[in-house]
Amino acid sequence: MSDKKGGTGAFIQVKNVWKQYGDQVVLERLNMNIAEGEFCTLVGASGCGKSTFLRLLLGQEAPSRGEILLDGQPLAAEPDVSRGVVFQRYSVFPHLSVLDNVALGLELPRAPFLGRLLGRSKRDAREQATQMLHKVGLDHALDKYPAQLSGGMQQRLAIAQALIMKPRVLLLDEPFGALDPGIRKDMHALLLELWRETRLTVFMVTHDLSEGFSLGSRVLVFDKPRIDPHAPGAYGARVTYDISLHDGHRTPVAADSLPADLAGPFQTAYQGA
């Protein structure tokens, strides 16, 4: 947080961001500032643009309007090493062993032609990868292939793979959505531990409200404040609640001044009809 650009403020700035596909507006007028080290959980109904917002942060898609600044600079328009990601599925490479899945992140940036390291640097990379895997509790499965791991272990591997890059931002797209409740509890503990240790800025999309509130230091609720029944795609979702959970002060703060927010989410459906 010490390397903030003078005057511009927050680590991540979202400035009047819109996203639309053709006539379908998915997100509209998003404005927010995120401090470095914040753990933001993104909650809301299906189809409310949480994952779209995550894809914008990842650089997988570009905003239709507005811009997102990372440390005062516009976000790179394609995925890169500054932002790590864990998806619900398909996050790990099925053709590589557990160890190689993590070591890959150390090899790729340093070997732009071969894509692999040789000799001593390879041993070093594998050594580092082993340490990272130890942290997520996978040191007993280094030589296994992902298909031989349980769902929870695969997600541990995906997290280790993302963290070895030391990204500035970690993006999680419903990472525990396919896991058993018991396993999910373990994963929450692991994730919080790693977050406290690294002080990463985390964005996590989840369907599970309690997960969002128990993990996040800030909860962003996505909802559509206006719906036109004759043109369902005319209005997009916004952040209707922005709740800071720092140090046990759980004070809900309305994201902006729309009266609809204060009136509660149930009445929003009739707006604009």
Binding site: L58, E78, P79, V92, F93, L104, P109, F113, L114, Q161
Partner: peptide
């Protein structure tokens, strides 16, 4: 996408 966040360029992405 994951490979790109791990630092792959187009060539190494195809290769690895």
């Amino acid at each position: 996408i994951k490979a790109q966040t791990l630092g792959a360029n187009t060539w190494t992405l195809i290769l690895r």
